[in-house]
């Protein structure tokens, strides 16, 4: 029998070995994610294909409206691929954050009965969405091959640029999951904010259409740096990556994660009472 260290529960004191506990429960990440994936695709007629259908139709619609009808510039890249590159991090972010707003409430029966570090729930929620991210990347590979986009060394940077997207998603998911337990309003706010975000981020269009003088402000949206960075790596559209914007994105993502974890932990112990 594995010997367990002494646990001390004291009023008003935070967990002494929180991160050690997270490590001890590391398999739960996998199990929660696995369960959510199973549940999500069980009893749906086309199963995992849903991960393909959503981005596919969004791309078709956006390409028709913005590329064909509005004739927005795409800087030489195929418009559909331009949209897909924008959609990949956004879709990942949006569905992870949206689920985070419901995640803790859906797991109320577990939270009120069993102890484990609660932060595992938003983290594993993000892990679940990695599946769709992978599907999106596979789609991109197919689309690029079909559109005969040249393969460049820039593409090696793609995973590196996805890193701030991951971090940002995680930070926001932690924030939103804690806030939506504390304030029910967030279940309404989140879908609305995400809908806005879809339009104010350079997803359906290239950031090049933003007038020069607004660029600085526009870069404060962390998705500007991420998406433009990805486009740089995929299409090699400019000689240098948008380093400044990427630095802003990384900074915001780090800040969101650090503050998110701090806030989450500050109210975590009251979850069972608040739910």
């Amino acid at each position: 029998m594995p010997s367990h260290p002494e646990i001390i529960i004291e009023a008003g004191k935070s967990e002494h070995h929180y991160w050690r506990d997270v490590w001890r429960y590391r398999e739960l990440f996998y199990f929660l994610a696995w369960r959510d994936i199973l549940v999500r695709y069980k009893q749906t007629a086309i199963g995992l294909a849903w991960a393909l259908v959503r981005p596919l139709f969004t791309i078709i619609v956006f390409t028709l409206i913005f590329g064909r009808l509005a004739r927005l510039p795409s800087e030489g890249a195929p418009y559909s691929a331009l949209v897909l590159v924008g959609m990949i991090p956004w879709q990942f972010f949006a569905s992870a954050v949206n689920e985070a707003s419901l995640g803790l409430a859906n797991k109320e029966n577990i939270i009120t009965k069993v102890y484990f570090p609660r932060i595992i729930i938003p983290i594993s929620g993000v892990i679940v969405n990695l599946v769709e991210l992978a599907v999106g990347l596979a789609m991109l590979a197919v689309l690029l091959a079909w559109q005969q986009v040249a393969v460049t060394l820039n593409m090696l940077f793609l995973p590196l640029i996805l890193l701030p997207a991951l971090l940002l998603t995680f930070g926001c998911a932690v924030w939103v999951s804690a806030l939506s337990v504390r304030f029910r309003d967030f279940r309404q706010v989140v879908p609305f904010a995400l809908q806005m975000g879809l339009y104010i981020s350079p997803i359906a269009y290239s950031a090049a259409i933003i007038p020069e003088r607004w660029r600085v402000w526009y870069a404060l949206n962390p998705f500007t740096g991420i998406i433009e960075g990805l486009r740089w790596s995929v299409f090699a559209s400019s000689p240098t990556p948008p380093l400044q914007e990427l630095a802003i994105s990384l900074g915001i993502a780090t800040l969101a994660t650090a503050s998110g974890i701090a806030y989450f932990r500050s109210i975590e112990k009251r979850f069972a009472e608040l739910l």
Binding site: H4, I9, E10, I111, T112, K113, V114
Partner: peptide, 26 residues
Amino acid sequence: SRTLEPSTGRIRIRGRIASLLEVGTG
């Protein structure tokens, strides 16, 4: 079982706890 935090006092626990607060939890 550490789902509620006490308002006062201290508890020390030695060993792995399994609680059956409601069977089939989760």
